[in-house]
């Protein structure tokens, strides 16, 4: 290995580390926004542990908040995709329940770029 080779290897390592830092720095979320149909049902802090009952289009669903994470813990929909999605903790993550017309979206300090509506 010559000097230039070592330079390339070092540059490569730096590049990889910078890429990891830039692209994998998941911003933690601070709030969860619950939407019902086309209206915002409410926005809740993720700091408080609580269960929120929401009456959706087909029945009551439960949204749980614990340790800075949020999830659907109970839903009247038949496929239960929203419940199986599990805990959400990063800014920009979302869980939807189409039959019940409910959705959760986690919000951080800065809103992430969203390709669906920007």
């Amino acid at each position: 290995m010559r000097i230039g080779d070592w330079c390339v290897v070092t540059t490569g390592i730096v590049l990889v580390v910078v890429l990891f830092q830039q692209l994998w720095s998941h911003e933690g979320a601070t709030r969860v926004q619950i939407r019902l149909g086309d209206t915002i049902y409410g926005t809740y802090s993720l700091n408080q542990q609580r269960d929120i009952q929401v009456d959706g289009a087909i029945g009551p669903a439960t949204v749980s908040i614990m340790n800075g994470k949020a999830r659907f813990s109970k839903s009247p929909c038949h496929n239960q995709y929203c419940v199986h999605q599990g805990w959400l903790s990063r800014s920009g993550q979302a869980a939807l329940c189409l039959p019940n017309q409910l959705s959760l979206e986690l919000i951080g300090e800065a809103k992430h770029y969203d390709s669906l509506n920007y």
Binding site: M1, R2, I3, G4, D5, C7, V8, V9, G12
Partner: peptide, 18 residues
Amino acid sequence: HLPKKHFGPVSLSILAAF
């Protein structure tokens, strides 16, 4: 075209892989 004195196949291999 990099100077052969300093850059060997290892450099080119890494650059090509990237």
